[in-house]
Design a binder for these strands. Sequence first.
DNA 1: TTGAAAGCGTTACCAT
DNA 2: ATGGTAACGCTTTCAA
Lengths: 338, 338
Amino acid sequence: MAVRLIDVARRAGVSPSTVSYVLSGNRPISAETRRRVEESIAELGFRPHAGARSIRRQATNVVAMVLPMFADGQGGVQMQFVLSALRAARARGFNLLLLTAEDGVAEINNLVSSAMVDGVIVMEIQVDDPRLPVLGELQRPVVLIGTPDDREGLVHVDFDFAAAGAMCVRHLLDLGHRHIGLLGQPADTFARQAGYALRAREGVLGVLREHELREVWAPAQPNPAGVAEAIEELFGQDPDLSALVVYNEQALPFVLERLKQLGMRVPGDMSVLAICPDDQAEHLVPPVSDVALPSRELGRLAFERLAGLIGGEEQPVSTLLAPQLKRRGSTGPPRRGR
Amino acid sequence: MAVRLIDVARRAGVSPSTVSYVLSGNRPISAETRRRVEESIAELGFRPHAGARSIRRQATNVVAMVLPMFADGQGGVQMQFVLSALRAARARGFNLLLLTAEDGVAEINNLVSSAMVDGVIVMEIQVDDPRLPVLGELQRPVVLIGTPDDREGLVHVDFDFAAAGAMCVRHLLDLGHRHIGLLGQPADTFARQAGYALRAREGVLGVLREHELREVWAPAQPNPAGVAEAIEELFGQDPDLSALVVYNEQALPFVLERLKQLGMRVPGDMSVLAICPDDQAEHLVPPVSDVALPSRELGRLAFERLAGLIGGEEQPVSTLLAPQLKRRGSTGPPRRGR
DNA sequence: TTGAAAGCGTTACCAT
DNA sequence: ATGGTAACGCTTTCAA
């Protein structure tokens, strides 16, 4: 069977409590005793039984992360959240356990009530997410990736999508564009009221409205047909379109391809500005200017906040990462006469 | 504090053991007692403490899954493995915990020795993976996604990449092609001896060799520049190329785009046949024929095998899913005179 | 500086 | 059909 603490103690000729204290550091131990115990631990290959430990400790050093319902692992920003949170957790000695949103709040509650996890990260937050009340009553720390409408409640981290959308439009306005369209997330993302999709759209359309320009936008499926359809829709709304804000990282390559097909040069005939992770824009042809979506940073930050809460530290309720524009040459002034 | 089993027992007016037996079903319980206990559980919102439970049981109902080092969540087949394994696990009442390959075998050992997990799924297996010996000595079930050179060792599940590559070439040969090239995974995938990349290549090149045809192949980075370079390289090796096997799901859209740029029609001037998940080929223009990589099936299967081992059942050591060709019209006979 | 022993919450054996 | 109670492996109080 597995090596137990008492085996270590016997071999080192000390009591179990001494071994425990060597492990936890909660009591001064003589150098000699410590040496013997550590040697014994090493030789026997002893690892404390996590379950037994979690009975007396108040913690498991495991956190849960709830994946969105529709996660498909395809170029998803969500997967970046998971991977970066995972790295951050591992670096701090935590383990990360995955749940899917299909599991629902009941399952989260289960994990928490059965003392399997010390805290939970939830992503894909809807503007008025029905899960929030329950999450608020969970007796364990929770961090959201995404901003709920009620910003006073749970600790959350997010990218400032509204500011990002606005920044895109302002950049294009500065270049002289007056006919700007948004090619956004797929329709079902809007349908489920995903905060990022709604806020980015409002960021874009809000600035257009301020400037009394036409509010042109369309959702797009991330495949050639979906993109072609969306672009047609946008031109239907405004035939003079000279600039596109693309907030749909998976569709972006197809947008460039479609524009080329239509005989439009970028940025000569059409400026393109994306909201997406930097590495998904920089290797395209032409390299696409973007407002970088800091997906890795967000996952890491979410875990850091959670770890803080678990450690009993106060954490800022709301953290919105500010957008930054990265120019790469896919935007320029509109053609004359536009 | 948290509700304990003894609280439930007191409220129901029974002994702790009775509650335990109601929970486990390991003993007949009178209808009346069961009712009282269940009511008590519901009213108190009792959840058994997972840690305490794991001391006495021999299991935690948690399994670990080891991600590849370089996982980036970008259209990765690996992420499909994770998601489908996760769904399968959740459906069977298991939790899934993530580890990264950077963590190394030592960390896997840690998880296992500390009784945190009942088993481990490891993916991205190299043909001669240095982790295998250690995994073999782990005192817990292990399932690999990927085929080691030594197929007698650990239980593994995989797609038959060699057969898939061969099937692609045979299909193209049947259509009359004699100048066939492989556009494969990125160079670093080959560099780290990933089994799937090597075996798919050997499947392709092996059949070409049998037929005494030129063995044309190139690795490709999944971006426009990388793909352009790879295609140029392929034409350099054989200017008469009339068919392409593409085993690089992320590069596939860029391949189609590049061919169009070069003025080549698909399948008129160039047949294209992919090895990739179906949903990454079907929505392209034109829809691409493929040998479908059953990524979801593999993740699910890996978990099922692991669950079987954990349950003490014998499992087949080697499971290779057979390839199947899905025709979608991106392949046709070569132009006359080729 | 160290040890003995009483828990922690659950399970399963031994009774009845 | 049910209850009492000794484990499980570790932590921590109390004593020395």
